[in-house]
Write a protein that binds this DNA or RNA. Structure first.
Lengths: 232, 232
DNA sequence: ATCGTCAGATTGTCGGACAATCAGTCAACG
DNA sequence: CGTTGACTGATTGTCCGACAATCTGACGAT
C-alpha cells in the first residue's frame, strides 16, 4: 500500500537523520550520567544555582532539565524544597519489580506471535550480555547489557509506549543499582539462567519461560533489597 | 507492625493533608481541561507568549507547564517549533489500546489474588458508570466514568507505577476522544458488557473475563479509528 | 521550477530580580 | 525543660526583559 507520491519521484533521503541536542538535553544527560555512575548519592539535593554555574548555563535551563529527571523518576521534587536524587525505599523496589514483571512476562508470552525482528532482538541482546559476562566486563557494562536484555522482552509487544514505560522503570532501578555499585553485588552469575530461558522460548515452551522469568525477577528483588536495606 | 514511636505519644494528626498548588500546576491543569473539553483541537499550536499573557503568568511558567503536558503525551514538542496538541494518528491509537490491553488484562487476571479493597474499587467504579448511563449523563461524564472503570482494572495490580502509566495512556486517549466528541459517538451501550464482565469475575471465571475485556478493547479501537479517520 | 534573500514570528537560552518558603539558631517564656 | 517566637541565610517559585538561532512565508532573480 505505497503512499501516493505527490507526482515526481520519491525522495531518496529516507536514511538521513539529525539529532537536535538542546542545552537542556545535554544538562539532563550529564545529570543522569552522574547519578547512574554513583557520583551523586541517593537523596543528594540537586541545587539549581550550583549546577547552573557549575555547568555554565542559566538556572532556568537547569530547572527544565531537572523537570525531565523528575518525570523519569530519577529524581523527586518536593515543593519549595527543590529536587533531589530519588532514594529508593523498599516499597519502590517492590513496585518497580512488580511492574517490570507485568510488562516483561506479558512480553515473553507473546513470543510466538511477535515479529521475527523482535525475537532476533532478544537473541542478540542475550548474545551481547553473554559476551560481556565472558569478557568479565565492568560491573556497569554488565548491568547495561543485562537490563537491555530485559528491555528486549518488553520489545516483544512491539509497542513503543510499553517500551518507553519499561525504560523509565529501568531508569528508576538504575538509581538503586548505582547505590550498591560499591558493594559489588555478587550478581551476574545469571547468564546461564537467561540462556536457559531463551532455549525454552525457542523450544516453544512459552509458559515455562514465563514462570522462569517471574522467578528470576523475584530473586532479583530480594537481592537488591538485601543489598540496599541490610546495610552495616 | 506499628512503627516504634520515638518515645512520647503518637501524633493524632495523621488524617491531615494540604495540596500545594503551584502556578505551573494550575496552568497545566487549565490547558488539560481545554484540550479534553475540545476547546483546543488536535494539532493546535500552544504559543508560549499567547498563553502567558492570556493567563497573566510569565512565559517561563507556561514553558514549564507545557513540559508537563508533553511528558504526559497530551502535547508534542518539535524543536524550535514549539509544542502543539497531540494529534492522534492511527498507529498511536493502535499502540495506546495495545498497551492498555496489556495492563488491564494482566490486572484482571490477578483478580483472585488482588486485595478485596482493589476488587471493591472495580465494583464501585462499575456501579458509578452504570448509574451515569442510567441517568443519561453528559457524554463527558460517561467517558470519565468509563475510563475510571478501566483504570480500576489496572488497580488490581496494586502497583502505583502501573496505575500511573495507565493514567498517561488514558490521558492520551482522552485527547483523541475529545476530537470525536462532536461526532457524538454512538458508544456507551456498553454498560451491559461490563456488567457481564464483572459477573464472570465474581463467578471465578477469570479467563473468560480476560478474553471478554480483550475483545472489548479491540472493538473500542476500531470504533475510535473509524470515528477519527473516516472523516466526511 | 529552483534558488537567494529578506522580514516577521517564535522558540531556546540567558541574566537579573524579588517574594515566599524553609532550615537552623537562639533567646524568651511559661 | 519543653514550647514558642523571632531572626538569619539559603533556596525555590515566579516574574521580567533581552537576544541569538531558527522556522515560515513571500518576493524576486535566475
Amino acid at each position: 500500500m505505497a503512499a501516493p507520491e505527490s507526482a515526481s519521484v520519491a525522495t531518496p533521503y529516507g536514511g538521513l537523520s539529525l539529532t537536535h541536542s538542546s542545552t537542556v538535553d545535554r544538562v539532563a544527560e550529564e545529570l543522569r550520567r552522574a547519578v547512574f555512575e554513583g557520583e551523586l548519592e541517593a537523596g543528594t539535593p540537586l541545587r539549581e544555582v550550583a549546577i547552573a554555574d557549575s555547568l555554565g548555563v542559566a538556572r532556568s535551563t537547569v530547572r527544565e532539565a531537572l523537570g525531565l529527571l523528575v518525570a523519569e523518576g530519577i529524581a523527586v521534587r518536593e515543593p519549595n524544597r527543590g529536587v533531589s536524587v530519588a532514594s529508593p525505599d523498599p516499597e519502590a523496589i517492590t513496585d518497580v519489580v512488580r511492574a517490570r514483571a507485568v510488562l516483561e512476562v506479558a512480553g515473553v508470552r507473546r513470543w510466538a506471535s511477535a515479529s521475527e525482528e523482535a525475537r532476533e532482538a532478544v537473541r542478540t541482546a542475550l548474545r551481547e550480555y553473554a559476551a560481556a559476562v565472558a569478557a568479565e566486563a565492568s560491573y556497569q557494562q554488565l548491568n547495561e547489557r543485562h537490563l537491555a536484555l530485559h528491555l528486549s522482552f518488553v520489545g516483544l509487544h512491539e509497542s513503543p509506549r510499553l517500551v518507553a514505560m519499561a525504560e523509565t522503570l529501568i531508569a528508576e532501578l538504575k538509581v538503586a543499582l548505582a547505590q550498591i555499585d560499591r558493594i559489588r553485588r555478587n550478581a551476574h552469575d545469571q547468564a546461564g539462567s537467561h540462556t536457559h530461558l531463551l532455549e525454552l522460548l525457542d523450544g516453544g515452551d512459552v509458559e515455562a519461560a514465563a514462570t522462569d522469568l517471574e522467578a528470576h525477577l523475584a530473586d532479583a528483588e530480594v537481592a537488591i533489597r538485601e543489598a540496599l536495606f541490610r546495610a552495616p
